[in-house]
Design a protein around this nucleic acid. Structure first.
Length: 285
DNA sequence: TGCCCCCTGCAG
DNA sequence: CTGCAGGGGGCA
């Protein structure tokens, strides 16, 4: 499940190879995964790549931007070189030999530079063209809350929201992209573990001081996620098609029944906000 | 503001 | 073969 660290890892990988490259052709294999007129993008050069929360953005020289969202099972894999790749025995070849495959939804061709494959098993993800001077026309981009490192995301702000939605669980608030952009199921569970707060706790019953810890720990766990190249528990891979290693660092997510890494109490799994939720009943109150 | 839905592969 | 995985849109 790509969340902020996974999308940032992809962004960094693509930035190295795509800036300055010219988009020569777009091949749409699955209509529902592409929105917009391809001719607004073809022939354009990639000027830069940025990201808001889990949403990736390619800034094009044509005045349009291509937004990309991986949702649950999306991948964006770049393969350098044109159709006939050089050096037949290169170790990377086995990795990309199968591209495109049955899950490939959109292919972005960059002439001799290479090819970007947008794969998505479940077709929830998408690429979308939006005018760069009118990003707010995108209903999702427009409503995104601050980046986790933005000073606008702080204890006071989180407390205000928790007071207003005092009956909600802290987990559902942190999952809300309008509150803070980029946290998802995995990193919320990890953040709440580090903060010593049970995911089901009512938002209105958490002190401002504790919410300050939530802010700090969310940043910490997201930074760690980026440092380890993201969590690969299912389909996630980076722009080179390689898996991340953050899954080995997780304290609670997908560790049901396994001993807590801090106190050895078995990790418990429940459902909160409609999501599979993991926590340590001893470390979290 | 919470719940169903979108979609597919795979665990049980 | 059923149901679960879960980001976010749409609805009551």
């Amino acid at each position: 499940m790509p969340e902020l660290p996974e999308v940032e890892t992809v962004r960094r990988g693509l930035e190295k190879v795509l800036v300055g490259a010219t988009l020569s052709h777009i091949d749409i294999l699955e209509d529902r995964c592409f929105d917009g007129e391809p001719e607004y993008a073809t022939g354009a050069t990639i000027e830069s790549l940025d990201r808001r929360g889990k949403c990736l953005r390619l800034v094009l020289s044509s005045g349009w931007s291509m937004l990309g969202h991986l949702r649950m099972t999306g991948q964006m894999i770049f393969v350098a070189g044109s159709g006939e790749r050089e050096g037949g025995g290169h170790p990377d070849d086995s990795l990309h030999a199968s591209l495109p495959h049955s899950h490939t939804r959109v292919i972005l061709e960059f002439g001799d530079q290479g090819t970007l494959y947008f794969n998505d098993q479940r077709k929830f993800g998408y690429l979308k063209l939006v005018r760069s001077d009118d990003l707010n026309s995108d209903s999702f981009w427009r409503t995104l809350g601050p980046e986790p490192w933005d000073e606008a995301f702080n204890a006071q702000m989180l407390r205000d929201i928790c007071q207003r939605r005092s009956g909600s669980t802290i987990k559902s608030i942190l999952l809300d992209q309008k509150v803070v952009a980029g946290l998802g199921n995995i990193y919320v569970d990890e953040t709440l573990f580090l903060s010593g707060i049970r995911p089901k706790r009512k938002a209105g019953r958490i002190s401002k001081k504790a919410l300050g810890r939530v802010v700090e720990h969310s940043r910490e766990v997201l930074e760690r996620g980026i440092a380890f190249g993201g969590v690969s528990v299912s389909d996630y891979v980076n722009a080179e098609g390689l898996r991340g290693t953050m899954q080995q660092q997780l304290y609670v997510y997908q560790r049901e029944g396994m001993p807590c890494k801090v106190c050895e109490t078995p990790i418990v799994k429940i459902v909160v906000a409609g999501r599979g939720t993991h926590y340590c009943p001893t470390c979290q109150k």
